[in-house]
Amino acid sequence: MLHIVNKSPFSSQALDSCVQVAPGGDLLLIEDGVYAASSGTVADNFMRDIMKRFRVFALGPDLEARGLADRLIDGITPVDYAGFVDLVARNKTCQSWL
C-alpha cells in the first residue's frame, strides 16, 4: 500500500501516525511532507528508522521548490509526477495522511 504524507514533520503528527499505524510499504512525501526527506534536521534519525520498514520517495518538484534538492537523505528516491502516478498504479490502495 502507498502512504502519502504532505505535512512537515516539524508541525504535524501525520508522518508519525502514518509510520506507527502502517506496517510498511511505500511512503511518498509530497508538498510540505518533503521537509522530512531533508538531511541534517532533528527528524533525520527518525526518517532513517522509517526507511528500514518503508520504501521512501519524495516528490522532486516539491523538493526543488523548497530548496531541498541537494539535501535529500541518501536512500530516499526522488520521483516526478509521472513517478507519483506509477507509485499509485503499482499499489492496490493509497492513503493520504491529511
Partner: peptide, 16 residues
C-alpha cells in the same frame, strides 16, 4: 497546494 498537486497529478495520469 493540494489543488495544484492534484492538477499536475492528473496531467501525468493522462500523459501516461
Amino acid at each position: 497546494q493540494a489543488s495544484d498537486t492534484a492538477y499536475l497529478f492528473c496531467k501525468a495520469v493522462l500523459a501516461q
